[in-house]
Design a binder for these strands. Sequence first.
DNA 1: GTGGTCTAGACCACC
DNA 2: GTGGTCTAGACCACA
Lengths: 131, 131, 131, 131
Amino acid sequence: MQIRIDNSSNRPVYQQIIDQVKRDIALGRLIKDDKLPTVRELAAQLAINPNTIAKAYRQMEGEGIIVTRPGAGAFVANLDSSLSRVVRKKLLSDVLERIAVEAYHMQIDRQTLLELFNNAAEKFNVPPRKG
Amino acid sequence: MQIRIDNSSNRPVYQQIIDQVKRDIALGRLIKDDKLPTVRELAAQLAINPNTIAKAYRQMEGEGIIVTRPGAGAFVANLDSSLSRVVRKKLLSDVLERIAVEAYHMQIDRQTLLELFNNAAEKFNVPPRKG
Amino acid sequence: MQIRIDNSSNRPVYQQIIDQVKRDIALGRLIKDDKLPTVRELAAQLAINPNTIAKAYRQMEGEGIIVTRPGAGAFVANLDSSLSRVVRKKLLSDVLERIAVEAYHMQIDRQTLLELFNNAAEKFNVPPRKG
Amino acid sequence: MQIRIDNSSNRPVYQQIIDQVKRDIALGRLIKDDKLPTVRELAAQLAINPNTIAKAYRQMEGEGIIVTRPGAGAFVANLDSSLSRVVRKKLLSDVLERIAVEAYHMQIDRQTLLELFNNAAEKFNVPPRKG
DNA sequence: GTGGTCTAGACCACC
DNA sequence: GTGGTCTAGACCACA
C-alpha cells in the first residue's frame, strides 16, 4: 500500500485516498481480506489528520469496498455492488457523456478517444465478460 | 438555448450551465458566433442569482469556449484548445482510468462499458477522424 | 422540524438526527423540496457541534434521502432508492428475523407481535400496494 | 452449537455470538440446561480472543439467557424476562417502527413487508398464543 | 491498539 | 450565509 497525496490537486485528500485504494483493488494489487494500513499508521505516513483517513475509510465502508472492524482494522471486502444495475449503468453513462463532450472541445477525435478508452479499460480488471 | 438546472444534482449550478453550453456546442445546436443569452436574461429565466451566471460565463471565457464583447454580449468562439495535445490526452486519460476503476467496482463488464462508451461518443460530434 | 436528542441513549447523536428526519418524511411531515434547518441553526438549537449535524446530513445525502446544495441548504429529495430490490428485502428481512428472536426471548407471542407490527406499519406511509 | 462469525459484518463479534445463541434457543436447537461450550473451547474453535467470548457470555448471563455455574460451565436458562410486559412491548415497538420507516424509504410496500415479517415470525418459535 | 463518535475551530467553494 | 473539507484532540466500544 503506497498512497501518494497531491496537495496541489483540487481533489479532496480523502477522495484521493479512496481513488487510490479502489485503483489498487482494480489492479489486483489488493485482494479480498488484505489489511489496509491502520488509520493512525496512514495518517502518520502521509502526515495528515487521522480524521481525514477515517473519513475515507468510512466512505469506502459505505460503498461496500472495504470492511472495518473496530479493534481489528480495515480489510478489503468482496466485490459486490448493492446498487441496482440500472443505476450503475446510468452513473457510468453520465460520466462518459461528459467526457465525450470534453473530448469534442479538446478536439480529440473519436479514434484517439477510443484508444485512450481501451488503454484505460485494459489496465484494470474490467472483466471482458459478465462476472 | 434551453438550459435546465437540476436542483437535485450535486453538481454546482454554474457548472451545470457550463456543461450544457458545451454540450449544445458539441451537439451542433450552438455554432460559432451564436449569441448566448445575457447574464440578466438567463438569470431571470432560470430564477438564479446573476452572479452564478456571470461566474459560468467568466469561466467559459477563460476556457476559450465563448468570447464576450463588452456591450454586445457573449458569443460562441472557435474551437481552439489552448492546451497542448499531450496535455489534453492526459486529462482525458486520467478520467477514463477513473471510470474504468469505477466500472470494475460496479461489476460492469468491459463489453457493457464499451457499449456505454460508444453510445456516448456517437451522441456527440466527436469527429471520427482528427477534426 | 422539531428534533429531540436523547443523551442517555446509546444511539449516536448523528444517528438520532437521521432517525427523526427519516421518520418525519415517512410520516408525511416533511415532503419533497422542504428545506431542512441549516447545519448551524440546528447545531445551535440542539446545542451540539455543527460537525455532528453535518455528518448526519452527509449520510442522508449519501442515502439519497436529502439533497444538499452548498450556499442554499439541505432539502428533502425524491423517494428513490438506488439499492437493488433484492438487497433492500434482505436488509429488512435480517432485522425482522432478529426481532422475531428477541420477541421469543421476551415471551411476546406472535399475535401480539403482529399487532405491534401492524401498529408500526400503519403509522407510516408504507404504501399498501407497490408504488 | 455451531457458531459462525461473519467478519464482513459490522456487527461486533461478541454480539454475533449472542445473536446466534439466542437464535438457536428460539429455534429449539438449544433447550434449558443444555451446556454451552466453555469460553476456552469456543475461543479456540472460532479462533477468537477469549475475552470476546467471555464478554458475550457475561452479557447473556446479565440478560438471564444463560446461567454460569462456576467450575461447571454455562447452561441455557429458563425463559424468564426480568422486564415488565409493557417495557418489552415498548422495546419491540420502537424497533418495528424504525423498520417501518426504513421500509418506506426503501419503497417496500406493506404487503411485501408483511410477507417478510411472517417469514421471520414463522421461522422461530414465536408462540401463536401467549406462551 | 483498533476504528467510531464528538467537540472546537479554521478555511474554502457556492450562491 | 450555506454546506464541505481539514485539523487537533478527547473519549469510548471492540478485540
